[in-house]
Write a protein that binds this DNA or RNA. Structure first.
Lengths: 153, 153
DNA sequence: GTACTGTTACTCGGATAAACACTGTCCGAGTCCCCAGGG
DNA sequence: CCCTGGGGACTCGGACAGTGTTTATCCGAGTAACAGTAC
């Protein structure tokens, strides 16, 4: 699970929009200073999110950006996919498209299960839940286990 | 979860070693032709695996490579970490090292849980289990669900 | 009052670029085993 | 039978290169709201 700076920025920007969720759009620069994101780069990112249908933009005075859907209908997985493409890929292919011979035959199955495990977390948690600090019960239960935080990565 | 060609090669090479697990080493080129891996590149990969302590090598006639530990004590996660570094990183840091202010405060918790979910699959499944086609029950149960294979990823 | 025009503030989209990672190749050097040959 | 030397087979390690990705930056163009102005 490699998450680049761009995707990280996108997630935090989306959360900033989720928190400010009124009718009034939020300016790119407001988000940039709030989260310490390079302003010009952030514009590009918001563009990507807009093209993915997650964000809407308004030009002109008092313009800015706002979420295209309610914050409780957008998941972390949605944002990651908008920036990075599919959650899991192996050498450029999706895990379920792989075909190996010999002892590696069952390897794709393991990777597919790993992808499912990721989805189970990332597609279950919405921006609204993170923004107001109340994670889904299944996620919060694991996050409360200190073991999960300390061990090697 | 982005897995590059190199990590993919490493996994398949390790499985090839797991399957041939006798005392006699396997030549790099044998593995390369069996799995369709560029031979020179594979040598580099086997070197990385050796430096990570997963593989041992013997030079000379009848030399080659073999697993440093029994195949049922090496997990998929071990191989991925040997090639790629930590399973999860966000903008170059480990998920549990992140600190955000404002609405993104709980984001690291979600990512840590996602990492734990990945580990739960990748650190549970050993090379031996894949090589002989018998996945751990918890993994096999999910892999048998056709839903997991078809949906977007 | 209405229509027109200009200003301002912000987004949109593409061009540009440095740094880095990925994928793969090449080659010389090191090392081990086996066999041959001599004592 | 033992010892020694050579050759073949294979790994070791690093240098090198082409390509693509990441992480930005910059700038001109588009556009919406608002204010001011002429009729």
């Amino acid at each position: 699970m490699r998450i680049g700076a761009k995707t990280d920025y996108a997630l935090r920007a989306a959360l900033e929009l989720a928190a400010a969720d009124g009718d009034r759009p939020v300016k790119a620069e407001t988000i940039a200073t709030a989260q310490g994101i390079p302003p010009r780069f952030l514009e590009k990112i918001l563009n990507d999110l807009r093209r993915a249908g997650l964000v809407e933009s308004r030009r002109g005075v008092d313009g800015g950006h706002l979420l295209a859907r309610p914050a409780d209908e957008i998941t972390v997985g949605d944002v990651i996919r908008a920036i990075d493409g599919p959650l899991a890929n192996v050498a450029g292919k999706r895990p379920h498209e792989l075909h190996f011979d010999g002892p590696a035959e069952k390897l794709p199955a393991v990777l597919v299960v790993a992808r499912a495990a990721l989805r189970d977390v990332l597609d279950r948690t919405t921006l609204a839940e993170i923004a107001c600090g109340e994670l889904p019960p299944a996620v919060a239960a694991i996050a409360d286990d200190p073991e999960v935080w300390s061990r090697r990565g």
